[in-house]
Design a protein around this nucleic acid. Structure first.
Lengths: 338, 338
DNA sequence: CTGAAAGCGCTAACAT
DNA sequence: ATGTTAGCGCTTTCAG
């Protein structure tokens, strides 16, 4: 009871020096056997735990990493966080949570936390790099930062991501293979890079199939339910509505399906829909959603592994790490009617 | 460039003492105006950030809290985490993520982090307290820990929760009001306390309506999709299946709806279903789920606020803080057929 | 293999 | 209102 024991307490109790206790407890292999065991015993007896602030100050490391997302409330990040957390734990790192809500100041403040010793490294999943305060506005590329899930254009930071374009193309090819010719795309925000890639995949697949893409077939949403719904409504007010929709994420796909139901269209009978992301419970929806599945936990784990490598000075990959995707064919896609 | 500036650098540059710089930068109001501004300017010019390890060591606080859940991969916690994060940020606290996966050792290790200075307090959402190592196995009740969402029986730790029993009773009363008489319950694990409360609410509402509860109407699941599905299958293999189901969480409700669909039953035409939790996208499901909505972000925020109070020595509430719930009546409930 | 001594960067008494 | 001094608890040279 009383006071938390310090290293000094153990040392005094055993008549050895604090240095020896420190060495014994950190497994340096520099302490001989009679002493070693005695120290360990005493430590566990006193229920000793080294004070992290003191250690961090001395070692100049925090053994913590910062995991920054745009919105902690979005299930999209869940599995990635889980992967990050697991890999971090295994390596003895703690994980600090960062939520930017798209706010540049907050983004910047998380970078500050890197410099003030809050964390040793960062896994960035916001898709943006705040402008650097002070000087030129450029960030050095040797920051201990790994970009995951999202990507940051023009940055040489290591990335862990999927082949968004390829995966999108395969999703669309699936619709083509089913016999669809009028395939529309509900994309993300026009300027967003991931949205661009997925749209590029859509276009490529359409081109490869020799199918036309009228401008009106390229809709944009905000990745949210309502956005998908509205985009879908616009598509079905066209003279020649599509028979299939490829949405840039699951949530918009659900929105679209919702709208189709309102319009009295059956999925997949009348219209096929493919999503992207395979979020939690996507297969529990009705009908279960055909979608592109990212290995999100693996992405998180890989990102953390990369970061650990960087922190250990092992170096970093010079090209983005691409993780494999799977097209989960469930029940929202079928051959077009007629 | 070069080296990260320390307080000493600013002091030397300005010809003042480090103490003055420290005081100026931490807004103690003890530094007079000519100096104050000069220090602030110099600090921002050098882009100075105080080293947190040093500060933490000195102040014996980490300005971090630990948020511990059973499964970070479960969207159930999302909004709560968001609330916690927001309240923490506002108070200048960082949030450390803890994931126990139901493992007692890991639970215990998070408690250790409280003692080793990793965090100043903890928000516990696991519903369990690991046995205390060493002595009697009892935890002191004055730990800086707030239990949220879940509850820990026999603990005097402050709790932030909902009236699970009352909310469940109201959900069932809704079914009764629609005219249902054969109402079954798919509960959580029998031993789990939240599951017990929700079941108690179910029983109470049934009793109040003068309705019988055959033992076969009290099913149990694991809060997962498949559990709900299987429980539902069992219910519908009964001689007299129910016309309505109250599930202890949304995920099992979805599982049940899935199974009903397989059995050719319509929801809500043939069978009504009510869930509990109102998880992300529950309203996007088809049909949109009638469910009990917890103010999860508010729960997180409240828990964090309580914790801050405890850390500030303001004291803690002597009874659980109950947050209000809402029954979201959507489209999975209707009057029974006939 | 172990001990002595120094110091990480900061803040808080205590003085002035 | 500011400076001086002393540590917070740990690890790591440097000696021996």
């Amino acid at each position: 009871m009383s006071q938390r024991p310090r290293i000094k307490d153990i040392a005094e109790r055993l008549g050895v020096s604090p240095a020896t206790v420190s060495r014994a407890l950190s497994d340096t292999g520099l302490v001989a056997e009679p002493t070693l065991s005695r120290i360990r015993e005493a430590a566990s007896e006193l229920d000793y735990r080294p004070n992290v602030s003191a250690r961090n100050l001395r070692t100049r490391r925090s053994m913590a990493v910062l995991m920054v997302v745009r919105d902690v409330g979005n299930p999209f990040y869940l599995e990635v966080m889980k992967g990050v957390e697991a890999a971090a734990r295994e390596a003895g790192y703690a994980v600090l949570m960062g939520n930017t809500e798209g706010n540049a100041d907050r983004e910047a403040s998380y970078f500050d936390m890197l410099r003030d010793g809050h964390a040793d490294g960062m896994i960035l999943m916001t898709g943006t790099l705040p402008a650097r305060p002070g000087s030129g506005g450029e960030w050095p590329d040797d920051l201990p930062v790994v970009v995951a899930l999202e990507m940051i254009e023009g940055s040489a930071l290591p990335h862990v991501q999927i082949d968004n374009e390829g995966a999108a193309a395969r999703a669309v090819a699936h619709l083509v293979a089913l016999g669809h010719r009028r395939i529309a795309h509900i994309g993300g925000p026009a300027a967003e890079i991931m949205a661009k890639r997925r749209r590029a995949g859509y276009r490529r697949a359409m081109a490869e199939a020799g199918l036309p893409v009228p401008a009106s077939y390229e809709e944009h949403g905000d990745y949210l339910l309502r956005g998908g719904q509205e985009a879908c409504r616009r598509l079905f007010s066209l003279r020649e509505p599509p028979t299939a929709i490829f949405a840039a994420n699951d949530e918009m796909a659900f929105g679209a399906i919702h709208e189709l139901r309102r319009l009295g269209k059956e999925v997949p009978g009348d219209v096929s829909v493919v999503g992207f992301d395979d979020i939690y419970l996507s297969e529990a929806f009705y009908p279960p959603l055909t979608t592109v599945s990212q290995p999100r936990a693996e992405i998180g784990r890989e990102a953390m592994t990369l970061l650990l490598g960087i922190l250990a000075g092992t170096g970093k990959p010079d090209s983005p790490v691409l993780m494999p995707t799977t097209l989960k064919i469930r029940e929202t896609t079928a051959a077009p009617r007629g």
